[in-house]
Design a protein around this nucleic acid. Sequence first.
RNA 1: GGCGACGUAGCCAAGUGGUAAGGCAGAGGUCUGCAAAACCUUCACCGUGGGUUCGAUUCCCACCGUCGCCUCCA
Length: 488
Amino acid sequence: MALQIYNVLNREKVPFEPMHEGKVNMYVCGPTVYDHAHIGHAKTYLSFDIVVRYLRYSGYDVLYVQNLTDVGHLLDSGEDRILKKARQAEAGPMQIVETYARSYFEDMDALGVTRPDISPRASAHVPEQIKMIETLLEKGNAYVSDDGNVYFDVRSFDGYGKLSNRRLEDQEAGSRGDVRSDKRNPEDFALWKIAEPEHILRWDSPWGVGYPGWHIECSAMSQKYLGDTFDIHGGGVDNIFPHNECEIAQSEAANGVDFARYWMLVGTLLVPDEFGVPVKMSKSLGNFYTLKDALKMHRPEVLRTFIITSHYRNPIVFSEDSLDSAHKGWERIYSAVRLVRETMRHAPEGEAGNAFLATLDKTRQDFVTAMDDDFNAPGGMAALHELTREVNILLNSEQTVSKSVLAAIDNIYRELGGDVLGIVPDDNAAAGAANAEREAGLIRLLIDLRAQARAAKDFAKSDQIRDELTALGVTLEDRPDGTVWRTN
RNA sequence: GGCGACGUAGCCAAGUGGUAAGGCAGAGGUCUGCAAAACCUUCACCGUGGGUUCGAUUCCCACCGUCGCCUCCA
């Protein structure tokens, strides 16, 4: 069965058929860069990282666009969040944007998240946004208010609500009616706002000096880089309304054709509150763990494993227990990989153990079957765990395994666990490889000395070596054919 | 109140109309100088109550519970 995707647009799993064979155009709503990223962001962007990695693994040529919001995202008070941060930090707004954009990429790089092909910024695409607003005005889907602001006229677009299943008549009319507004209808949303004097993020426009509304950037930038209609639009479910809904309205009204063909929305990351009740991790609630802090305590592969453990559409609850569990599960896979690589150093040439190649084929098949089913990464992980059991049985048996078979095993771990899931490190390519090689040599020297002590039944000496290495973070494991080591 | 999602073993978590992957933890065992790791065995009547069906955990309805969105958040 070919790739199936759960399309939020129709709430059903359907075969994925890109517009242009072999090519996928994909847009994901990016972060507003006014603070450091937290684990909730990691869940969303890591989920789409795996989507992109798997699509590429499957042979698609993917063009991946993810924006950075750096203007127009207002607080309840009406203040722009970036301007507020800038005021607090006594810095210029673009300084703030630059700082946190870099921070975001640093964290994502550290997590092994593949960079988007294009990371357009809202502030750099104001002309495109103005142009789209002009089109909407021409087509009668937008209007200029008495105060000079431009709003999208939601009632002019029939499809409004089709993604989130909301109907205008169901919304509590007047719930926001108390707020003095120059909108025709409360559900209309801003395309362009006239700037107050203190609002220094401002641009000239046909409607006066101002700034764009929050939603229009995604419509304008996706159109610019991916066209009027593109294949996949992603984001967090928490943005389904109003943001995603507004994007659809603007783009389809302006362009007259379908916007995104497949909508993929990622479940929310929750964290227990003081009573143990899970609530959304968010900047505004202040209950977030930054990725920088998380990365100090856990390897990126472990954070990835934690997130991959559940399906992308489901919510997950963040806890140290779950992370520990993920850590141990990951360690199990990585131990087997290390054992394979270590064994390979002394393995004979030839074809011994060739029968195991069938297991590799089955693993790949199981993995692909799982991932083809709406990117079921937990299923992919299960395939790797089953492989790991087989590998451990093989390498703990008396059977001779040739170098080529071991290389094939290592290769499938690299391919599925490394290239696609990003949880199996590539020890060879690491920076500082020279130091690592020297360290490995020293450890092997100590292992040899310990082996001599053990042969002489000098267990005091052999245990001393093992204990002191343990204290340094190096664990030894004795096996019938020698001792292997790992760092913690 | 409206919209959406979810409720599977001690914990995390896939999945299927014909009695349920995987991981963590636990118990017993094999192996080991000891250990570690690994392997083997063991551990679930799938929220509650109805309905459809030869048969439902899987479909439908109701109820209970949890979360998300409806205002800024991935």
